[in-house]
Every structure is written in C-alpha cells, then in structure tokens.
Design a protein around this nucleic acid. Structure first.
Lengths: 140, 140
DNA sequence: TACACTATTGAAAGAGTTTTTCATCAAGAG
DNA sequence: CTCTTGATGAAAAACTCTTTCAATAGTGTA
C-alpha cells in the first residue's frame, strides 16, 4: 500500500508538507536529521517549517513509514522504512543505510535471554553497521 | 577489575565527582539521563556540575564502564555495564535494565544480511525490550 | 608529609535541538 | 462550493549538550 493511502485510511490528510518530507527522505539513501530533512525538502516546498518536519517525522514513525537510525552517539537521523519488521544496516564510512528483513535467527537468543534474566521479551531493536559495497571496495 | 583500578591504570584520576556519578548509576537499576544522574549524584556530592556529569559519562563509556541505552524515542540514558560485549534488556513498564552476554546466535543472521545487502558487517547494536519479572507478575 | 605538576572541576555563556502556543490556512467530506 | 477541522508555520520557550577558563584537588616525587 502506498503511504498516501495509509495516511488517508488512518484519517490523516495528504498535504504538500508531508509530500515534501517523504520526497526528501526518498531522494537520498542516507538517514537525515530533522534539520537536513528541512533543507532538502525546502528545495521543493520553500515555505516548510522545522516544526512541521518534526511533527511529520513523528507521524511517519508512528505509522511505520520511517525508521529512526540509532548510533552509539547521536540518534537523530531518519530513513524511509518498508512496511513490516525490518532492521537497518548503516555504513560507518559514508552513512548510507539499507534494510533487511527476517530475524528468525535471534529467537534462540531471545529464548536464552529470557531464561537468563527472567524478562518476558516482546521486542527487539537490532541495527548492524559496517561498510557498504562501495566503501569496502574503496578501502581495500 | 575494579573501576577505580581501571581508571588509575589508564592514567585517569579517582575523584569525588567520578565516585558520585558511578555511585548514582549503581544505586538504581534503571538507566539514567545526564540530568537524572546529576540529581541523584548531588545527594552525595552537592557541588557536582552537569558539565562534569557529561564528561564523566563520556569517559566511562569510552572505558566500557557504562552503556548508553537506546529506545525508539529518547536515547539519552546510561546504565552501568560489565566489561566485554553485552546487550541491554529494558523493561517497557518500569524502565529497569538488565544485561546479558553472548550473541553467537546472530552470526547466521549477519551472514545472511551480508549476502542480501553486500555490506561488510563488523558491528551490531542489539537491545531487547519486554517486561521484567516484577512487571510481568503484576500485569497477569 | 609537603610540593609541584597537571588533570579535573564547575560556573557561565553559547550553540543546537525539540516543543509549545496560537492565529491562519487548506484538505477533503458533504 | 462551502464548512469543518486537521495541519501549518512563525515566534518564543524549554531543553540538551558543548566550549571556555580560572580555580581546585589528585597523585607521583622528594
């Protein structure tokens, strides 16, 4: 389903500001911080305000349309997300982000963690980092 | 090894401020944000300043003595960390944090992600969430 | 124990980032 | 086309984090 359809279906309006934010995120494959989204989106919608960017990112995240990318230092960047459960991979050299799906492999780990800690685990946040194909090639 | 020994060994000094910060983190099992560390630590070392808290948390994190806890919203909390590679589990009800070690299970997943995306993966950030024993008992 | 050296500290000011408020605007149902 | 109400953007406030610098206090040495 299209993101515009999802918005409509949930009772949200399709606005120029929201289109500008989504287009900004789609136009690059690097996660963007709010201020960067603003800069990028203003090339198409100059009147856009930073407040709206924050509100829009919040909404999109709630709907699962964008994902917040976490790093040890600084967790303020957002990237588009496919529907469903995915995880992000971020290149530590150029910042490019990709996503991949499926995490059956960690069920065993979760089971073990439950046994060890007594927690009832119902969610996980996993993010991988490394070098993307281009950067790996460059640094050989 | 004791954290004070580790500091000495690396050429850092044992100061009242650093003791206060470490004690604050050890006194609760919930991750604390910098401002919360300040509040807690000031009960024992009233002259402590926020700047020192930030610097101390940075240092401790560098030395692997504390871990930054990430959440979908808000990634500014710190908790004590055992030496070595560990992952955090955070209770989504009371905020309590635990850690567990060992993540052999995700090697297969990493291998698959490398095949799928072409990235050369050399690091991962995994954090589990759920209910701690107490909260799970309470909500039955 | 006293001294000297220098890492560390804390206050103030500055730089960012995110949120709140509120009048205005415009998407979309009827 | 009109109306209703969600959405927007500007300004200001509230936070969060960093930089600067004089004063302080660990720690090795004598």
């Amino acid at each position: 389903m299209d993101w515009e359809d999802l918005l409509s279906q949930r009772g949200h309006r399709i606005t120029a500001a929201r289109r500008a934010v989504m287009t900004a995120l789609e136009s690059v494959d690097v996660p963007l911080a709010a201020a960067e989204v603003l800069e990028e989106a203003r090339t198409r919608h100059p009147r856009l305000g930073l407040v709206t960017v924050y509100r829009t990112l919040d909404l999109f995240q709630e709907l699962g349309l964008v994902r917040r990318v976490h790093r040890e230092v600084g967790c303020h960047a957002y990237t588009t997300a496919s529907p469903g459960h995915h995880h992000a991979i971020v290149c530590r050299q150029c910042g490019r982000a990709a996503e991949f799906s499926g995490c059956q492999e960690i069920h065993a780990l979760i089971q073990r963690a439950e046994d060890e800690t007594g927690f009832q685990i119902d969610g996980h946040m996993l993010q991988l980092s490394g070098l993307c194909r281009e950067c790996a090639r460059g640094s050989e």
